[in-house]
């Protein structure tokens, strides 16, 4: 009986951990979906998340109101995305270079600010974090309740965001226009769709989602900011987006898979499972990422105009 019980807790831990690890990926990945569906490659997701995680922590620290922190994170995400948008859409700069610049900037900026504000390198002091949500009734169900009944709000928000994103992209006129702009902006313009407005909207939306992803790190799962705490999650989110064929549900599945690989790795460490070296499990998500990028797992076709700045004639 004892081993049996142990099995169940392992599964619960796995599911809980998978959801936790997947949440920032889902939010950032959805940001990537919107941005790329409109034709703008947003490799800056990583940097946006990092700055948002920092700003969220900062506001929560000074106001002691974690939800204000979340708002600040989203706002700062939008602000940084706006910079990326202006560079890519208005000035038609290389989107990957702009994104890389933002990523490099964000690491130094948050590191500098951390030292400036707290006179402390490495990590911030603990700040108030967003309280967990419990879902009535579901929480009471054995096993399932333990798995999905009580989580940080970001977990539920990310799942809600998937459903909403799918609806917006595939069931509304805005979604049709977003996809049109990402596939063939000139065709969209000839029927009166404002290509630039749609692209700005999508890039800002991706900033908001990546900002929320950043907040989930510093105000959801932890209650502090750590230097470079995103640890490449922005890039993995992009990989999940590709893996998920630029669709919200596909991205969700990919994020859950990546989250699961992460969870497995954490679990095997805590249980002291040594038959697979933990290094290999640590590598697993990244190998999956590379496989997805190389198109080994499922050939995916990006939006045709993704990464190409749009220029009106004349």
């Amino acid at each position: 009986m004892e081993t049996n019980l142990a099995d169940v807790t392992i599964y619960i831990a796995l599911v809980v951990s998978t959801l936790r690890m997947a949440t920032p990926l889902i939010l950032a990945g959805l940001g990537g979906v919107f941005s790329e569906r409109s034709g703008v490659v947003n490799i800056a997701l990583e940097g946006i998340m990092l700055i948002a995680a920092f700003m969220g922590m900062l506001v929560s620290h000074f106001t002691r109101a974690p939800w204000l922190g979340v708002l600040a994170a989203v706002a700062s995400g939008i602000a940084v995305a706006a910079l990326h948008g202006v560079l890519c859409i208005k000035y038609k700069s290389n989107q990957v270079v702009s994104g890389t610049a933002i990523n490099l900037f964000s690491v130094s900026f948050t590191g500098f600010m951390l030292r400036k504000v707290f006179e402390h390198a490495g990590q911030s002091p603990p700040v108030p974090k967003v309280a967990d949500w419990t879902i009535p009734f579901i929480e009471k169900i054995p096993v399932i309740g333990a798995m999905i009944g009580k989580h940080t709000p970001f977990v539920y928000l990310s799942l809600l965001a998937v459903v909403i994103s799918h609806f917006v992209l595939f069931k509304t006129r805005l979604g049709l226009r977003i996809r049109a702009v990402g596939e063939h902006p000139k065709a969209a313009e000839t029927v009166g769709v404002d290509v630039f407005a749609i692209r700005y909207l999508c890039v800002l939306l991706s900033g908001a989602l990546a900002g929320l992803a950043g907040a989930s790190l510093s105000l959801g799962f932890l209650s502090q900011f750590r230097e470079n705490m995103t640890g490449g999650r922005g890039f993995i989110a992009l990989a999940a987006m590709i893996f998920g064929k630029w669709t919200p549900y596909g991205t969700l599945k990919a994020c859950l898979l990546f989250g699961f690989a992460d969870a497995l790795q954490i679990l095997s460490q805590t249980l002291g499972l040594t038959f697979i070296p933990t290094d290999f499990l640590l590598m697993a998500p990244y190998i999956l990422t590379m496989a997805a990028l190389a198109g080994i797992i499922g050939r995916s076709v990006p939006p045709a105009a993704s990464g190409i700045p749009y220029e009106r004639q004349q």
């Binding site: 049709l176 049109a180 000139k186 065709a187 969209a188 029927v191 009166g192």
Partner: peptide
């Protein structure tokens, strides 16, 4: 246009209505 201004992965109907899409009461396409 000489080079068609059509979006290949969209359906014929989607291409035709793009820009002035009919929506129902709920705002759904």
């Amino acid at each position: 246009h000489q080079h068609f201004m059509l979006i290949p992965p969209f359906t014929v109907a989607e291409n035709i209505v793009l820009g002035i899409e009919p929506v129902n009461a709920g705002g759904k396409l």
